[in-house]
């Protein structure tokens, strides 16, 4: 039983290799997490963390090049500023707001939802709304045209007041749709 490690065996040599491996594994895991805590406490910010914020920013000097991959000195300075602000505990949004205030909204990859840029966000919604209204109107017109055709077929010669009330009405004045009516009549005659 001397090979068994008990909790009370602190300081005694561990002879079971499986227990040694387990012990070393636990020690390494502990060191790993402890190191992470130490890095966080000392405010060290990794390049990945900096680039995660920088990728949605553009320096005005190098147009069309995201800040995380821009090789110029100006962009390197900006990335260092992001690193400093992250170390100070600022959030991604706060950093983006700072850059927009300091260097203009043009540095943001996504235009802000304010001022003139708001139009860019609203434009698709307005476009869809107008498209929807046009589509509904188009469908209604199609229905009314269909109703005119149906009316030609069912209107009695001497309609009673009740049946006259049920006659679907064309969408446009007859005077204005004379050509259309003529064509409907021609088609009906051709079917006879």
């Amino acid at each position: 039983m001397k090979d068994r490690l008990r909790i009370t065996d602190y300081g005694l040599p561990i002879t079971d290799y499986r227990l040694r491996i387990t012990f070393c594994g636990l020690l390494l895991t502990l060191l790993f997490f402890t190191a992470g805590v130490v890095v966080a406490q000392t405010g060290e910010v990794t390049d990945d963390e900096v680039n995660a914020v920088a990728k949605d920013l553009f320096c005005p000097v190098c147009e069309s090049t995201p800040l995380d991959v821009c090789p110029t000195k100006a962009c390197a300075d900006w990335r260092e500023l992001i690193r400093t602000q992250l170390a100070e505990g600022k959030t991604r949004t706060e950093i983006h707001d700072y850059f927009a205030r300091q260097y203009g909204d043009g540095v943001l990859a996504d235009p802000p939802k304010r001022g003139f840029s708001l139009i860019l966000w609203a434009l698709p919604v307005i476009g869809v709304a107008i498209g929807g209204v046009l589509f509904v109107r188009y469908v209604r017109n199609l229905r009314r045209e269909g109703d005119v055709v149906a009316a030609t077929a069912v209107v009695p010669a001497n309609p009673s007041p009740a049946s006259a009330a049920s006659v679907p009405q064309p969408a446009t004045p007859l005077e204005a749709s004379g050509d259309y009516v003529s064509r409907v009549e021609e088609e009906l005659l051709a079917r006879k």
């Binding site: 009695p156 006659v167 064309p170 007859l174 409907v184």
Partner: peptide
């Protein structure tokens, strides 16, 4: 039946 063109515009 009657033609559409025969419907009085006033009815519509």
């Amino acid at each position: 039946t009657m033609k559409v063109s025969e419907i009085e515009p006033t009815e519509l």
